[in-house]
C-alpha cells in the first residue's frame, strides 16, 4: 500500500508488545482495540493483525496488488476511486485502486484492515509503531506498507455492522492511591472535559477541583488504564504508549472497554466516570 498523502497521524498498529516493560518499552497497540479487531474480524483475519490507524483526518492510499479491506472505528467518509464507500464491510481492491479519506465526523481513531494484515517490520515482537523503536512517529507520504496479494474473497463476507460506541460514561475503579482523593464521592455525576489527547494518555479536566490528600508518592509502576491525578488537579488516563513508571498518585483505574471508549473521545467532549468497586473488576 502506497501512502499518496498521509493523514494527520497515521501509524501501523497491532495488539502491541509484551515482555519489554522491564526495559521501559511501552505496550503500544490499537488505541481503540474493539474497532481495530472488528475490522480484522470482518475480513476473517486474526483480530490482532496489523492495521492502519488513522486519527481525525485520513489520507490517500493506493493499493498495488489485489486484496480486501475493511474500514471501522470513528466514522470517516471515504471514496474508492472516487465512489463513496461503506465502513464495516468487506471491500474488494484491484491493483491501482485508491482510497481517499476525509475527516472523521465524530470520534478519533479509524482503522483500515487489509486481508491477512499488514506485513510491516517487526520490532520487539510487534509491528506497532513507536518513535523510540522505529525512529519515526507516523507514516509519511511515499511510504509503502507491504501486504500479501490475495484475490479470493474472505469466507466471512457479512460483517458485524455495529459502529464505534461513543459512550459518554466510563467505568473506573479505585486505583492503588485512591485515598489521595479526599472526597471520592465528588466523582459521582461530575462532568469531566477531555482536555488533551495523544497515544500516551488522555488528559481529563474535572469541572470542580478534586480535593486531594497531601501525600508524597514514590515513583511507581503504571500501565494503560491507570488514571493519575496531577498536582494541578487534572486526571490523566494513561493509554497504549504510556511510560512504565510515573510519579503521580494512581487514584483510579479503568478497564479495556474504558480505554477503547476514551480513545474515541475528542478534545472538548465531556464524559462521566462511573466509580465501581474493584471487586466487580476482579470478579470476586
Amino acid at each position: 500500500m502506497f501512502v499518496k498523502r498521509a493523514g494527520l497521524l497515521d501509524t501501523i498498529q497491532d495488539s502491541g508488545r509484551t515482555g519489554f516493560f522491564k526495559y521501559a518499552v511501552p505496550r503500544s497497540g490499537f488505541m481503540d482495540a474493539q474497532s481495530a479487531k472488528r475490522a480484522n474480524t470482518i475480513l476473517g483475519n486474526d483480530p490482532n493483525d496489523a492495521v492502519l490507524e488513522m486519527s481525525i483526518q485520513g489520507g490517500i492510499y493506493r493499493f498495488d496488488s489485489p486484496t480486501f479491506v475493511c474500514i471501522s472505528g470513528a466514522p470517516m467518509k471515504f471514496t474508492l476511486n472516487g465512489i463513496h464507500g461503506e465502513s464495516n464491510c468487506v471491500i474488494p481492491i484491484q491493483p491501482d485502486d485508491e482510497i481517499e479519506f476525509s475527516q472523521a465526523s465524530e470520534g478519533v481513531y479509524t482503522y483500515l484492515a487489509v486481508k491477512g494484515g499488514f506485513r510491516s517490520s517487526i520490532r520487539m515482537g510487534s509491528r506497532s509503531m513507536h518513535p523510540s523503536l522505529f525512529g519515526v512517529s507516523r507514516l509519511k507520504e511515499g511510504d509503502v506498507i507491504e501486504y500479501l496479494p490475495i484475490d479470493t474473497a474472505p469466507n466471512k463476507m457479512v460483517g458485524n455492522t455495529s459502529d464505534v460506541s461513543l459512550c459518554s460514561k466510563m467505568v473506573v475503579y479505585p486505583g492503588p492511591e485512591f485515598n489521595c482523593l479526599k472526597t471520592p464521592e465528588q466523582l459521582r455525576d461530575l462532568p469531566l472535559k477531555v482536555a488533551g489527547h495523544n497515544r500516551m494518555g488522555i488528559r481529563v479536566l474535572p469541572s470542580t477541583y478534586l480535593h486531594r490528600r497531601h501525600s508524597t508518592i514514590k515513583s511507581s509502576v503504571v500501565f494503560p488504564g491507570i488514571v493519575q491525578l496531577t498536582p494541578s488537579g487534572e486526571l490523566i488516563v494513561l493509554h497504549r504508549d504510556c511510560q512504565v513508571t510515573g510519579g503521580y498518585p494512581r487514584v483510579l483505574l479503568t478497564n479495556e472497554e474504558g480505554l477503547n471508549q476514551i480513545a474515541q473521545m475528542r478534545q472538548g467532549s465531556t464524559i462521566q466516570f462511573e466509580l465501581t468497586d474493584l471487586s466487580n473488576y476482579l470478579g470476586e
Binding site: T18, G19, F20, F21, K22, S219, S220, V221, V244, T245
Partner: peptide
C-alpha cells in the same frame, strides 16, 4: 527475583520492579 519469576512462570507477560515493589502482569 524478577528474572526468576520470568523463567519459572511462563504465563507471566511482564515483570517490572521499582522502589522495593515487583509488579507482575
Amino acid at each position: 527475583v524478577a528474572e526468576q519469576l520470568e523463567s519459572q512462570f511462563s504465563s507471566i507477560q511482564d515483570v517490572v520492579f521499582l522502589n522495593g515493589v515487583i509488579t507482575v502482569f
